[in-house]
Simulated scan of single mutants.
Amino acid sequence: MTLYSDNHCPENHCVRWVVAEKGIYYDLQLADIQSTPPQLIKMNPYKEGITFVDREVVLYEAQIIFEYLDERFPHPPLMPVDPVSRANNRLCRYRIQRDLYNHVKVLERGSSKKAMATARRKMRENLTSLAPILAQKPFFMSDEFSLMDCYLVPLLWRLPAFGIELPRQAEPLLNYAHRLFNREAFQTCLTKIEREMRI
Rank of each mutant, 00 (worst) to 15 (best):
C9E: 05
C9H: 00
C9T: 11
H13M: 12
V15M: 00
V15D: 01
R16D: 02
R16W: 06
R16G: 02
V18E: 01
V18N: 10
V19E: 01
A20N: 08
G23Y: 03
Y25D: 14
Y25I: 13
Y26P: 06
Y26W: 09
Y26M: 12
L30G: 05
L30D: 07
A31E: 08
P37N: 07
P37F: 07
P38Q: 06
P38M: 02
I41D: 03
I41W: 02
M43C: 01
P45V: 01
P45R: 14
Y46G: 05
Y46W: 14
Y46E: 10
K47C: 14
E48V: 10
E48R: 15
E48L: 15
G49H: 13
G49N: 14
G49I: 12
G49S: 14
I50F: 01
T51K: 07
T51P: 10
T51H: 01
F52N: 05
F52E: 06
F52R: 00
V53Y: 06
V53E: 05
R55N: 13
R55G: 12
E56N: 11
E56V: 07
V57D: 04
V58I: 11
V58H: 00
Y60Q: 10
E61P: 13
A62Y: 08
I64G: 13
E67R: 15
D70S: 04
E71M: 06
F73V: 03
P76R: 11
P80T: 11
P83S: 12
S85R: 13
A87P: 14
A87R: 14
N88P: 00
N88L: 15
R90G: 08
R90Q: 07
C92S: 05
R93M: 01
Y94P: 05
Y94G: 12
Y94A: 15
Y94M: 05
R95M: 08
R98F: 09
R98H: 13
L100A: 03
N102T: 15
N102K: 15
